[in-house]
Design a binder for these strands. Structure first.
Lengths: 129, 129
DNA sequence: TGTTGCGTTGACGTGAGCGTCAAGGTTTAG
DNA sequence: CTAAACCTTGACGCTCACGTCAACGCAACA
């Protein structure tokens, strides 16, 4: 199938697919006229990437999973590198939960009373996912 | 005091202070030679902005607090607009906590077993703070 | 007088993951 | 034959809160 169809079937855009390729995540074959050519295996890879992104992993973090699938494993997270990414992300999530709970307490307190002196935190504060 | 001293006392940079001014958050006076001129009140405003940013509020969100202080209130969060920002942020944080807990469960499950089919979520997923 | 260290504006860079043209070639339907 | 609907590469845009020059003016000290 060509890029438009793959995009449609995966529920994404051609731009995203070309971007994945530019990042070395999705190597496509080419037809004689230069069009990209994909198969079901590619669809599987794209779905894997999407699932992982939905959990908050960066594109870079999906790399080991894609490699794992391309290495022939039936699931992308059965390789050590993938599991390491899971562990790292879990730690991030835990830290983020702690931080957000603190923030939540702060907001509740501020909405309840007034003026308890603001205490700026260690600045290392970035929770996203 | 001039911009360098204010930056030092607030623990920030001159670039940030100029940026706040360009955003209309921090209006400075000018000496005859064109230098910006600040006082203790400005320092208070900068500290307010920093505290709020540390809790995960955007610069845009700090606007009502700054306005509240400039309106003469002793605390920036005693005005209705400020409290509304708190409430909105609290809702965001709650949604984020829910989402992160889901992600956490997912990661734990994946690290424990293998291969339970990935379920991509509603895509409206962005937790940051 | 020269140097160092302040200040000024302006403009481009950063990161993530694409969106959105631009300017063309190809294929397909009518 | 032609127009629509695909495809190609390349390049700039977007968000956010500044960082980092560049090129210059002003001030203080030896």
């Amino acid at each position: 199938m060509r890029i438009g169809e793959l995009a449609k079937r995966a529920g994404t855009t051609t731009r995203a697919l070309r971007f994945y390729e530019s990042e070395g995540l999705l190597e496509a074959g080419r037809t004689p006229n230069g069009y990209r050519e994909y198969d079901e295996h590619h669809l599987r890879l794209v779905r894997e990437i999407q699932s992982l992104q939905a959990v908050g992993l960066s594109l870079e973090d999906t790399r080991p999973f894609v490699a794992c699938l391309r290495a022939g494993h039936e699931s992308g997270d059965s390789c050590p590198d993938s599991r390491e990414v899971y562990r790292r992300k879990l730690a991030e999530v835990d830290a983020c939960l702690d931080r957000l709970n603190t923030v939540r307490e702060f907001l509740l307190a501020r909405l309840a009373f007034q003026d308890p002196c603001l205490v700026p935190e260690p600045k290392e504060f970035q929770c996203s996912s």
